[in-house]
Amino acid sequence: MALSKEPATRWAWVEIDQGALRRNVRAFKNLLAPGQRLCCVVKADAYGHGAPQCAKIMQAAGADMFAVATLDEGIQLRQSGVKIPILMLSEPPASSVDLLLQYDIMPSLYTAEFALAYGERAVELGVVGRYHMAIETGMNRIGVHYADVLEFRRSIDFHRGIECDGVFTHFATADDPDSWEYSLQRRRFREAVQAMKDADCECGIVHCDNTPASILDPATHFDMIRAGIGLYGLQPCERTAPIFPLDPVMSVRARITRVTHPAMGEGVGYGFTFRVPRANVQICTLPIGYADGLARVLSNRMEVLYKGRRLRQVGNICMDQCMVAIQQMTAQPVEDAEIGELVTIVGRDGDAVITMDEMAALRGTINYEVACGFGMRLKKVYL
Score class of each variant (00 low, 15 high):
116 L>K: 14
72 D>C: 08
43 K>Q: 12
146 Y>C: 13
51 A>K: 06
148 D>A: 15
103 Y>C: 10
68 V>K: 03
116 L>S: 05
81 G>W: 04
43 K>T: 09
42 V>L: 15
107 P>K: 02
44 A>V: 05
143 G>L: 09
115 A>L: 10
77 L>E: 02
142 I>M: 14
105 I>T: 05
71 L>M: 03
85 P>K: 01
95 S>M: 06
138 G>A: 08
49 H>S: 15
90 S>D: 08
55 A>M: 01
64 D>C: 01
80 S>G: 12
112 A>Q: 15
148 D>L: 10
126 G>A: 13
131 Y>L: 06
132 H>G: 00
50 G>A: 13
35 G>A: 07
35 G>N: 05
64 D>A: 04
124 E>Q: 14
35 G>R: 06
138 G>V: 08
91 E>Q: 14
69 A>F: 14
137 T>I: 13
136 E>L: 11
104 D>L: 06
64 D>P: 01
49 H>F: 14
56 K>F: 13
149 V>K: 02
70 T>N: 06
121 R>E: 13
140 N>G: 09
50 G>P: 09
73 E>N: 11
78 R>Y: 10
110 Y>R: 00
148 D>R: 13
54 C>K: 01
122 A>I: 07
49 H>G: 07
99 L>N: 12
112 A>T: 15
129 G>L: 07
147 A>N: 12
95 S>G: 11
42 V>P: 02
145 H>L: 15
142 I>Q: 10
50 G>D: 14
109 L>W: 06
104 D>I: 00
80 S>R: 10
40 C>A: 15
56 K>N: 01
126 G>N: 11
41 V>E: 13
124 E>P: 04
128 V>Y: 02
70 T>R: 15
150 L>M: 09
63 A>P: 06
120 E>V: 12
68 V>I: 15
46 A>E: 04
49 H>R: 09
94 A>D: 08
117 A>S: 14
54 C>N: 10
141 R>P: 12
45 D>C: 07
141 R>A: 11
33 A>Y: 12
38 L>A: 02
58 M>G: 03
48 G>I: 08
120 E>S: 14
125 L>N: 11
134 A>D: 12
79 Q>A: 07
138 G>E: 08
137 T>N: 07
116 L>W: 13
53 Q>N: 10
37 R>D: 05
57 I>Y: 11
139 M>R: 13
43 K>I: 12
78 R>D: 09
75 I>G: 01
140 N>R: 13
68 V>T: 12
45 D>H: 04
104 D>V: 03
103 Y>V: 03
119 G>F: 09
53 Q>W: 05
97 V>W: 07
59 Q>T: 07
106 M>Y: 09
141 R>V: 09
89 L>H: 03
145 H>N: 15
109 L>V: 13
67 A>E: 00
103 Y>D: 07
151 E>H: 13
55 A>I: 06
79 Q>C: 08
120 E>Y: 13
101 L>K: 00
59 Q>F: 01
60 A>T: 14
46 A>Y: 02
100 L>K: 05
119 G>H: 08
145 H>P: 11
123 V>W: 03
61 A>N: 02
101 L>F: 03
